[in-house]
Design a protein around this nucleic acid. Sequence first.
DNA 1: CCATAACCTGACCGATCGGTCATCTTGGCT
DNA 2: AGCCAAGATGACCGATCGGTCAGGTTATGG
Lengths: 204, 204
Amino acid sequence: MPRADAARNRRSLLDAASAELATHGLDVSIARIAARAGVAKGTVFNHFPTKEDLVAEIFDDRVAGLVAFGEGLREAGDPEQALLRFMTAGVELQANDRSFCQAAASISRADPRVRGASDRLARIAEDLADRARQAGTIRADVTGHDIVLLVNAAGQAAAPLGDTMPTLWRRYLHLIFDALRPSGARKLPVAAPTTDDFTAAAHR
Amino acid sequence: MPRADAARNRRSLLDAASAELATHGLDVSIARIAARAGVAKGTVFNHFPTKEDLVAEIFDDRVAGLVAFGEGLREAGDPEQALLRFMTAGVELQANDRSFCQAAASISRADPRVRGASDRLARIAEDLADRARQAGTIRADVTGHDIVLLVNAAGQAAAPLGDTMPTLWRRYLHLIFDALRPSGARKLPVAAPTTDDFTAAAHR
DNA sequence: CCATAACCTGACCGATCGGTCATCTTGGCT
DNA sequence: AGCCAAGATGACCGATCGGTCAGGTTATGG
């Protein structure tokens, strides 16, 4: 059992790191996080062996939240609305956390926790996409992996404008979401990525 | 008039920087670029006062190429194909140059050259969008700024997969391009960004 | 062919980073 | 109250970065 102050410090560190990562992205220094948490730099490494560990923990937490939200959506009535809500939550996560997309790109997927979180995210996306597809509200050739990547794309669309238009991402999310409808769908020039493609990318 | 070897070194440096930036992104060290060009590190700073200057020069060059391509497209017959070609070129640029999107995001738009390049890019995008809109092949509420941001989004979509599927971006570009068609268009929840929004974002 | 300005060179600088560790402090158990 | 291990601390380390500069080298005009 950890000591009381150790547990408190751990919480402070996670909170501080979460806030600093969201504001300043992956480049925040450990020193800055420690200062915000009100502890010395060495304490950070008492709790997390490396910076990557700390970031992975927060990343996993964020993904887990999104996955939980998606799972709650499965019981919702309208599959189309469920998918839209899920994608909205995903983009919102990126909009509120500068480190999120960076972390997704840079964290070693060799870390089993990160792998697990990513896999669960892909699974719930696939699930929601399946339901929407069966309901006929999205085109047949769009997969769960597509959904994940498109959420990423929508989140990045408004990034060049910074905080100038904080809700601009909604514009592009809706535009992209409209692109998923079956009406007028044309054949896409490249096949959707498979799970193997994702794991292959993770091994590099 | 510069000395012959100085001109040669400048070219080598631009070529080396171009290649290294494309492969490794904005984080390449000046030392690495210098080594690739076959000159000493100090020589880099003889030609470019700061790293940002060097990056800006290459960034401007890339954007200028895209703008020139877009201008050549204006005389093409089919406005829809012209717009698609333009967007394809834009995404391809990102796919082949890891530094391009990073540079677009981080370079100070206070630099007049960068500002000029960005403005010209926005103008040609607006122009091509206008023609497509008048031809009735894209929806009325999509602007040139939208095009620029959507090209950015499409380029980022496949980024998480790295080089695993080098042409996957075509899938999402076509998907997004289909979203621009007028048929079945629904009202978007947020207005398009204006030129002022872009300049406001640049001043931060 | 030479004088010289233009240019190249690489050792060096200060800042910053993630990470370590000897030392001290303190929470918790008896 | 007193002990001791868990844990906090911050000086310190090596690496790396962008950038500088004194001094050596070379292209070039005359």
